[in-house]
Design a protein around this nucleic acid. Structure first.
Length: 269
DNA sequence: ATGGTTGGTCGCCAA
């Protein structure tokens, strides 16, 4: 008899690619550069039939996609076989959107998450965003055991506190930073999850993971930390590092244009 | 700060 597969070291990357078709050369380069065990993608923007499975399998990864036309879309890539796949979750107030895919990879529960953007505080999408987080938190609490290894990784579209904002005064009252949004992330973490990026960085500003395409925001340092990895204690207590691959956000870093999000590389053992 | 930019699609909408 053998127990569940346990890797000595696990490297997980989460990345909002803003179109997996546009980003495919950079994604393949990222797999080669970081050699991750697991990758969580968001904003793939393709239906499953159009997902580039062949190119990804050719470099040694299995892939599971939950995608739709034009918008949203999530995926999990892994060296090991992803099992127990869940696409979407019951009670999602945006059931037409593809925002969540879950899989077990080498004994770790992995969830790729694309939280509702919300547009602006006075938009109907804002109330949808809050309701989505409420429903998502119920599902996570029902499905997972905090004693087991679990990572929720993705673009949550919320900067958890002012350290995650380049200019908190400028952003006050804006989407991504409002107290109700932050309360939702806190409620999710109250299930027994740690914010690995903050745990690794300590009490400092950043590191940011997203910069608006406009106004040279990346060059000027106008960023937010909205791409998060939230994990239960079996992972959090084994954390080695969390690094933002800022190079990937640069126009010159690879073939084609960059995503507006940088990949986040999480390692534990 | 949001007069910018990008992607999917082919009109604009979403971010």
């Amino acid at each position: 008899m053998v127990g569940p597969v346990r890797l000595l070291v696990v490297r997980l990357v989460t990345w909002n690619v803003n179109s997996v078709k546009q980003r495919l050369p950079r994604l393949l380069a990222l797999l080669d550069r970081h050699d991750p065990d697991v990758v969580c993608l968001q904003e793939t923007k393709v239906v499953d039939d159009d997902f580039p499975f062949e190119e990804i399998e050719r470099v040694g990864y299995r892939a599971r996609s939950f995608g739709q036309r034009s918008y949203n879309g999530v995926a999990i890539l892994a060296r090991a076989e992803p099992i127990e796949i869940a696409r979407g979750f019951p009670g999602d107030p945006t059931p037409e959107a593809c925002r969540v895919i879950a899989a077990d990879v080498a004994g770790v529960h992995v969830v790729s998450v694309y939280g509702v953007n919300g547009k602006a505080l006075d938009s109907p999408a804002y109330e949808t965003k809050l309701a989505w987080f409420d429903a998502f938190t119920v599902w996570v609490g029902d499905r997972f055991d905090p004693a087991e290894p679990l990572v929720l990784a993705g673009d949550f579209n919320v900067a958890p506190d002012d350290r995650d904002v380049h200019d908190p005064e400028l952003w006050r009252g804006k989407i991504h930073v409002s107290q109700p949004e932050r309360d939702r992330v806190a409620a999710l973490m109250d299930l027994g999850l740690s914010d690995l990026g903050r745990q690794a960085a300590g009490d400092v500003t950043g590191p940011f993971t997203w910069w608006d395409y406009r106004m040279g925001a990346f060059h000027r340092g106008w960023g937010l930390r909205i791409d998060l990895a939230l994990a239960t204690d079996p992972v959090a207590s084994a954390l080695i590092s969390v690094e933002v691959d800022r190079e990937e956000r640069k126009p010159t870093a690879g073939e084609g244009k960059p995503s507006d999000h940088a990949p986040v590389v999480v390692t534990w053992a």
